[in-house]
Design a binder for these strands. Sequence first.
DNA 1: GGGGGCTATGGGGGG
DNA 2: CATAGCCCCC
Length: 755
Amino acid sequence: MNNEVGFPYLDELNDIQRRAVTTLDGPVMVIAGPGSGKTRVLTYRIAHLIKTGVPPWEILALTFTNKAAREMKERIEKVVGPGAHRVWAGTFHSLFAKILRREAHRIGYPNDFTIYDTDDSKSVVNDIIKQMNLDKKVYNNAAVRSRISAAKSNLITPKAYANNEELMAYDRMNRRPLIYQIYEKYVAKCQRAGAMDFDDLLLQMFRLLYQNPDGVREKLQNQFKYVLVDEFQDTNHLQYETIKMFVNYQGSNENICIVGDDAQSIYSFRGATIENILMFENDYPEVQTFKLEQNYRSTQFIVQAANEVILNNKKQIQKKIWTDKIEGDKIKLIKALTETEEGKRIADNIIESKNRYNLRNNDIAILYRTNSQSRVFEEHLRRYNIPYRIYGGLSFYQRKEIKDAIAYMRLTVNDKDDEALKRIINYPRRGIGKTTIDNLTQLADDNEMSMWEILTKVEFSARAKKKMGDFVKLIQSFKQKAATSDAYETASYIVRRSGIAELLRSDPTPEGQARVENVNALLDGIKEFVEDDELDEGEEMMDKTMSAFLQTISLMTDADNDTEEQDVVTLMSVHAAKGLEYRSVYVTGLEENLFPSYMSLSSPEQIDEERRLFYVAITRAENYLTLSYAQSRYQYGQMRYNDPSRFLEEIGEGNFDSIISISKKPEFPQPKILGNFKKLGAAKAPAISPPSGDFQPSSPEKIKAGMKVLHQKFGTGEVKSVDERMVASIHFDQLQDNKEKRIMLKYAKIQILEN
DNA sequence: GGGGGCTATGGGGGG
DNA sequence: CATAGCCCCC
């Protein structure tokens, strides 16, 4: 049909996809269901732009992860050749950081600005709360930080915050009326430190465009003639306004293409809003919309289940995904008594299905709602010698020894970075104690200077002076080294001379040795960074400074260091799985209070988001989908009993493997407290205990064949027989393998329910 | 100033 | 259960 000469790739697309790819000018919106070839459309669209004569560097493609951007570039390259690498593709954060590294000096930041991670931000907030003498139990630093973050994401300045009655009323209600002051101080403090937090990378980019010093806005608008945004449903207000800055101007062709799926919006907790999709249609009335609904990924039962689940969300863009793939296998459900059993049975299932379906480890993913759930799976996979890799959780750069080493590098690059300074001023120990540091902090606050400035300018008592003088000299020697050497030489100099290397080596424990190796791995990483000589075609120069290195790593996520060569089972959170696909997927921990999370139970909007998250989870599967839940699990150090997730019931029974059914009735008398737990917003939930109060073990000799009994661990069951040694064979209702358990009555905690 | 042990507290997803 | 922060003692 489509034989356009020179564009053979267009033949690989269906009609709608092709139109989405070839409609190059003016605003375009692509609503793309899971597995509908979204990435293919984005990739080919960019390739098509280049093929029709648009220089790659005039294309700005904002993706959700660096990995996605990298993969996209590789695929574009296959179509158009080497020029592809000059496309500006990356995450909002990384591309904006790249631009800000050139332009930040125009808006009051050093070009070598530090990027504060969440811990740094929290610590800044902490300091301010302390400084203002506020009760840190009321002014919880995480809560305050997230208010500040939300304000920034909505383009609300500290001043505007103070004048916003809604925000102020909310804060008063939560007994935190002074957040606006903390916000103001926070902004000032970060700026003084020459530091941007993650939100600032977006916000300062916006400011740069808005304030337009030296015509930098026109320069950028002129450069990026085509703007594409992936996962648009996960952008926040600030991101959208920034995009508009690039696109909206006198004489603009408004060449913007957004791709997204409202049903997969799962990041509202960091300010993302589906409103952006509606706004888009308002802001660009000329928009041409394409809906991709054919799913090429999953077999029918999976697609069917996904549709059934998402139907429970009322606010949706009308859309129904379909597939012409085979019916495929039904969905399996694993019901476990405990989290440990869940881990074991999934590991068992992996072994079995690998044989039966001829799967490689790479075909398999285990997904969970919270990262802490990974532990049990890890244990069982290790026991079976199944190689795996965990994404998320504590990444390499979050490890203490790495952060310590990096703090030295940060301070060397940007001496105003107070968070880095505080981290290492007395690490390794050099006799600068709490009192001195408090003093220093106070002086810095009072004089609105950085701690480093105080260190270098203010006179201290003789003893303190000596110690601090030594520290200053040390850092100055690092600065000097950095000025004359590359990042690797500087870094290894720092690790040696700071005393970190020696300190770590002195710990002979395996953990200690692991820390040494980690720091060495960090140095190797820097070396690799420095020695990378692959200049992209047309690229001017490569930035090999330590500052550049620090910038790249602070925006790196776990998914970016992939080891795709290896054949391993993937373990990750559902959030992290967005955009990925596997032949066999396990979605685990499907319990009320966990998935959906207990944090979301109080609001219907948040439940809807959990549901979209579940929708994302199940649509990762190509051929085999297994769902699982445990009736009890340790949460926060206590055994908890949770109902099966409501989402399980939203999937029609017909989609499930008939052998296994969902048990609708709870096996244990459900603790009444659950109801309150939800309403109280989980502030102080008492431990949910096992049958406890109602459960009274009956004396062993009374238990006879034919009785209905309640076992503390296995739930209700029927006693089939009791032998002379007081061993009972009991059939428990909830155990799936129709077998009876042999229970030693002498030790068992069993209550007679009926004779 | 430094270190160790104890208690209280909070506990999600991520760039 | 993990961690932050506190208190106490050297």
